[in-house]
Amino acid sequence: MAIVKSKLIKELKKSYPNFLIRDLDKVVEIILKEIKETLKRGEGVELRNFGTFRVNIQKASIRRNPKTGEKVSVPKKRTIKWKMSKDLFKKLNNEKE
């Protein structure tokens, strides 16, 4: 099951009961906004012990519509590539350091 922002804020509230929910919501919003703006500038984002986000540029190409077989021109676009950290990999695979 995926975690949504509201559930993340509830979990933060359990861990930090002295903070107000609106303050935790604002902190999460600021963090997500900074990540988005950094990626929009074409820079990478590194979150230690979690992973890195990088901007990947897909070049323009001509592809085929599978339904009609017609050739379609796809413009150049930017995508996000995420790579998990070694620590997260070890935790997911129950490996000891």
Rank of each mutant, 00 (worst) to 15 (best):
R64I: 15
K96V: 15
K67T: 04
T68Q: 08
E70G: 01
K86D: 15
T52E: 02
I30K: 03
N65C: 08
K33L: 15
I35S: 02
F89S: 12
R63A: 14
V72P: 00
K96N: 12
R63F: 06
K67H: 04
G44P: 00
D25K: 13
T68Y: 12
V74I: 14
M84G: 10
L8K: 08
S73L: 08
I3L: 15
L12Y: 02
T52L: 03
F19V: 04
K90T: 05
E70Q: 09
L8R: 07
V28S: 10
L32C: 09
S85W: 10
N94P: 06
K86I: 13
S6Q: 13
I21Y: 13
K13W: 05
I80A: 08
P17K: 08
K77D: 01
T38S: 15
V72S: 02
V28D: 09
E95W: 06
A60M: 00
T38I: 14
N49H: 12
K7D: 15
E34W: 02
K5G: 08
K13Y: 05
D23C: 04
K83Y: 06
V28K: 05
E70I: 10
A2F: 02
K81V: 04
V4F: 10
K5T: 09
I80T: 10
F50A: 12
V55H: 03
Q58N: 07
R64Y: 10
V55Y: 04
K81G: 07
T68K: 09
V74Q: 01
K90L: 10
